[in-house]
Every structure is written in structure tokens, then in C-alpha cells.
Design a protein around this nucleic acid. Structure first.
Lengths: 196, 196, 196, 196
DNA sequence: TATGAATGAGCGTTCATTCAT
DNA sequence: GATGAATGAACGCTCATTCAT
């Protein structure tokens, strides 16, 4: 533990503090609204120290994004059981993701900003890592069993994540979050979009 | 300003030049990447003059957003015929909007940036204006005829605009734009999401 | 006069103030010891204003060098009469230059610094301009009349400017400046170096 | 440090490594362009360790200068034979020094930088040490035998070192180095400068 | 003794906005 | 009204030095 831990950022509490402060500031003020100085202050750390952990502001932003993406993906697959029926798994994935967004509004806001930031138009897209196979198999099953429409997986993804993100954004922005009954209706609607 | 025109910005060519230049610069470099000076230069207009048309950078951004929102809405309803069947109208609205996004990538990028910019977290949301009634009537019909799911209109909207924006973003970012057959499939999928 | 003057820097008093302040600070503290902020303060001008006249610190340094080089060259040729005997002209050039150095210690120090600064290893070398021809003709005469040694002009130059600069540096650094009699001896010595 | 060696820096290999790295970095990037950290890295030594050998950056620079000055002086007197005629000894000294400069361009560049750096305007000048007597005797002979002009030794020195340094700088900067015949001409010219 | 992560003052530069012309 | 030079606070980042280990 004193040398390596499985999560690269868990091993360094300073790094965590910086990322935590960055998350709060960036989601509140945007990348440009939060200065390195304010970030340092918020993290209770001198400016120079940030640069021992990140090459610069941009790298810090990327690192935070990677972190969040990873976390979100992990949350998405919490309690995921490949043995369950496809529909049950779909519900699980959708609910998990939506719950993550609502319970992590700062992460959500940051990630949306990041996705549409024109000065960051690159970013290693797919860091799906260990879950990539799971996802592939999920879609594969759906196609094979004739449950999913014959559309490419990235279009199916858009049909799911599009509404999910839009609704999460609304809920976070202040619109009342959907109750349990309503939520299931929305999930059903998304299923209808991708199902034959 | 001494004449009344229906479109408040059409009356002033300078204002147009500024907004046009702002659109290009903002979509390329982001709000912060484009300085007022560069904007002035790109518009071929002195810096000071911009401030005679807009109170400041932020107002300029808001004004540009309003402009684009209006334009997008107008494009959405191009050729819209209330007499057509609901499904035909749905297709029309979807296709119109998607076509607008693809043919106006700068406007699309700018609007996405704007939507997720935390330092602009206010912005008079609904400027649907003349089309508001049309939209209300569209959804009203769907509910009344038992064609649409019993979900609030803003959720139905999310079920439509979510995928549409996600797909437009992909198409603009470089993924091959969907062909005509594929496009209809996607529209059908969106319809499935909102239809009973 | 309100648009152009023959000396590009004379036309702009702000530019002059900046260059003047830069000369003082750079010669005292070196290029790195003098910050743009201190320079601005010393010039009685806000920092930002400096950047309206010079692209950056480096350009300012180059501009100052060019200025000084020009001035030094002009001083060198003050009262130069091509009709005088070669030896008389040699004396004139030497004395003029030496006098300029002693009466402009800041310019001298700055120029020496500049010449040996490793981060400025380029600089348009020969900005001799109008005097180039005069100099060429001076050396040409010396060669033609068999007065000068058969060494390339840049070596002859080194034989003259080397001691001149070394002595100027000494004099400025505090060693007592040579009296008139002594000065003539030194000039004679330099002449002996280049003369057959 | 626990043993006495004639050269104080030879006793400590770490110190040597630091000075060697400093020489390379300083001559390439200047005093300010090379950070203590880069210096440590280049020397393969931890930063903190440098401060165990030198009080700070400035002292390190001074120490390096002293080292080089000593080395140059030693090189100057290599094979010097007091029994040889004055002129032969002059040639030897001149050639030795010039050869040292050309074969040690980093040392030469560093020393030139140092000499004109205004933030180092102190530096114990004359560390001629063991060779001081030799030099004094050299000049003394020249005066006594009526071979040298009646000018103070520091002026004679300037008449020699001025051209020598100027030519070395040229040669190192890229101008073709003088061939053997040419070199003797230059030495003769310097001799003419100081000789009656 | 030896280390190298931590520090924070200070750097060069930018740019939204103002206001004298 | 129209202009664009002037402004100075604020930015991201560096680095000589220290000191806990």
C-alpha cells in the first residue's frame, strides 16, 4: 500500500485533495472561472504543489475526467449480474447510471462541460477498460436474440445515454427529480427506443 | 434601430457581423479562447464599437445564443403543416432539426458549449415564441389521441432531443453521418420511445 | 512629423520612456534581474502598455540593442571627414567610439551583456546601414595604399575593437580613465596592430 | 575534503560532477536558463546535495568561474620556459591561451557571460596565484629591455586579451578558425601593438 | 549525512473594458 | 456617434531554497 495501490489516485492524498477541489470549482465556475490559485486555496495546498502532481491545468482537467469516467463506469456496473435477463440488466445499468448522475451532480456537470469544451477536442475517448467486454456482450446478446433493433451499437448508445443525460441535467438543474414510478416509465421508454 | 424590423438583429449589419464573427470564433476556440480584440478583428470592426451593440462579452454570448435558438426553432418548423398526421409531423420536426444541426455545425457547437457552461447558469430558457403554441398543440394531440405515453412533455422532449443532439454531435465530430435509410430507423426509434 | 520621423523611436515618447527605463534597469540588473513590472514602474507606465509597443521582453531587448548599435555607429562617425588622411580618420573613429562608450556606460554595459547572452544567439548582426560603405572604403584605402596588414577586415576590426572595448570596460568599472596623453598612446598601439 | 590535494575541487567527485553539469548548462542556456533542478538532473545528483557543496546558485557560478580562470591560466603557461626569449614566450602564451579557448568553447562562453553579467559585479578579480610572479616578471623584462611600450601592464594586457577574446569568440561562433599562417600574423599584430 | 517533495513569491503575458479624442 | 490606445488585475506557471525524513 505504501508503494502502489490499485487505484492510482487513491495512493496520494494530496492528489485526491487537488482533484476534489478541482471538481468543486470547475463544476461551479467552469474551467476558466477557476484559477489555479483559487484551486490551490480551496485544496489548502500551495500553488506550486499542484504542479508536482499535474503537468499543468489542462492535464489536471484531463486527469479529473478520466477519474470520473472510471468512477461512473464502475457505478454503472454495480451489482451487474450477467446471468440476469437482458431487460433486467438494462434496467440495472440505466438506474445505476442515473442514480450516479443525481448523486454526483458535480461529476456530472464537470463531465458535460468537458465533453463540449472546444479546447479539449481530443481526450482518449473510450476508457471503458474492464467493462468494455461486458458491454459488448450485452449488446451482442440483444442483437443475437433479435431483441435490439438492427442499429449500430453507438446509435443504440445514443438512444440510451441521450435521454439519460438530458434528464439528469434537468433533474440537477432544479426540475423535480422523477419519482420511482415515473423513472420506470422513462426506462421503459428508452427500452422501447432500442427494442424491436 | 430607427426602423422596426421583425428580426431585431436584421436591422443592423454591424451587429450581424459581430455575431457572425463571434459564432466562428467561439465555436472554434470556446468563449474564453476568443478575445474581444480578436473578435473585433475578425468582424472587421473596432473593439469599442462592439460595446455600442452589446453591454459586454457575456451579453454578446447570450444574444448569440438567443439568435441561434430562434433560428434553430424556425428551421425546425420549416414546412410544418398542422394538417398532416401526427407521425408525419414528428418526422418533419425531427428531420428538420437534425438537418439544421448538421448544416450549421458552428451553431450546434456553440449551443452545446453554452448549454453546459456553468458561468452562464441563467439564460432565459424558453424563447419558443411563436412556435410555443404549435408545440403545445403537437404534444396535446398526441396525449389526447392516446398516441404518446403519459409522460410530461419535457420528458418526451428529452427522449427526442437527447438522441438527436447526441447523434448530431457524433456526426459533426467526424463519425460518418447516417444515410437516409439509417436516419429513418433512428427517427422510428425516437418515435418508439415516446409512443404508446 | 505627426506620422513618420526619420528615427522610428523618436516619434513615440512612450516608447522612448520604456527604452530609457529598460536601459537603466537592464544595465544595472541584467536582463533577468529586471522584471517587466519593475520596468513599467521605472518608466512610469502600466505594464500592459509596454506590450502595445513591444511584442514581449525579448523583442524589447532586441529593439534596445538595435537602437544603441545605431547610436553608437552614428557617434563613431561624428565629424568623420573622408578627405582626411587615413591615420587622422582612424584616430577620429577610435576616439569617437571610445568617448561614446565612456559617456554612455549604460549603453556600453547593455551592449556587452547582449553580445554574450546565450539566449539571444542570433540578432541581425550587421546593422551598419549608411556607414557600411564608409567603413568598407576606409579599409579598402588602407589595403590599397599598403598601410594595413594583409589580414581580413574582420580580423583588423577585432584588433581595434577588442582593446577598445576592454579598455572601456575597465574605465567604466572604475579603473581611472586614461588621460589624454595616455589615450593617444593606446590609439597608436592599436594602429601599430593593424598597420604594416 | 579530508585529504589535501593541490586542486581543492579534485578531492570531491560530486563537486566535479556538479561543476561539469553547470558548465554545460550555463554555457548553453545562460545562468537563468538553467534551473538548479535541471542542473541536479544533468549531474545525476539530488538537488539538496548541491547545497551541501555550494551555498547557492550564485556561489556555484562564482566557484565555476574561479575554476575555469585557474584552468585557463594553467593552460596559458603550459610549457612556458622563462629562459626563452621574450618574443618566443609571448607567442607561447598567446597560442596557449587561444588554443585553450578554442578547445574549451563551453568554458570560454561561460567566462564571457560571467564577465559581463551585471548581477555578479564583484568577483575577486585576480586569482592569478602562482603565475602572477611569472607574469610580472614577463612584463618587467619587456619594460626593462625597452621592448614594450611605456604603458601600464593592464593596458598592455587589454591590447593582447582584447583581440584574442574577440577572435576566439568569432571562431567559436562559427566563423572559420584561422589557419596556422594566419594565426601567426595575428600574434604578430598583437605584438606590434605592445612592442615599441 | 543525504535527500527530494514542498513551497510561494514572483515571473511574463493577456484581455475585458474604458474614455479621451 | 465612433474609435482604438490605454489600463492593471488576474492569469498559468517556475524555481531557488528549505527541512522533515
Amino acid at each position: 500500500m505504501n508503494v502502489h495501490s490499485e487505484n492510482p489516485s487513491a495512493g496520494d492524498p494530496k492528489r485526491r485533495r487537488i482533484l476534489e477541489a478541482a471538481l468543486g470549482l470547475f463544476s461551479d465556475e467552469g474551467f476558466h472561472g477557476a484559477s489555479m490559485a483559487s484551486l490551490a486555496k480551496s485544496a489548502g495546498i500551495p500553488v506550486g504543489t499542484i504542479y508536482r502532481h499535474f503537468a499543468g491545468k489542462e492535464e489536471l482537467i484531463h486527469a479529473l475526467y478520466v477519474e470520473i469516467k472510471r468512477e461512473r463506469l464502475a457505478a454503472m456496473f454495480a451489482g451487474y449480474d450477467p446471468a440476469l435477463p437482458l431487460r433486467a440488466r438494462f434496467d440495472r445499468l440505466w438506474r445505476n447510471t442515473f442514480a450516479y448522475c443525481l448523486s454526483h451532480p458535480r461529476e456530472f456537470c464537470f463531465a458535460e462541460q468537458y465533453a463540449f469544451s472546444p479546447f479539449l477536442r481530443d481526450a482518449g475517448k473510450s476508457i471503458q477498460g474492464e467493462f468494455k467486454a461486458e458491454l459488448t456482450s450485452f449488446f451482442g446478446e440483444g442483437y443475437r436474440d433479435g431483441v435490439f433493433k438492427s442499429l449500430p451499437p453507438d446509435i443504440l448508445s445514443s438512444l440510451i445515454s441521450g435521454p439519460l443525460n438530458a434528464l439528469a441535467a434537468r433533474a440537477i438543474a432544479g426540475a423535480t427529480k422523477p419519482g420511482d414510478a415515473r423513472l420506470q416509465d422513462v426506462i421503459d421508454a428508452c427500452w422501447d427506443a432500442i427494442a424491436v
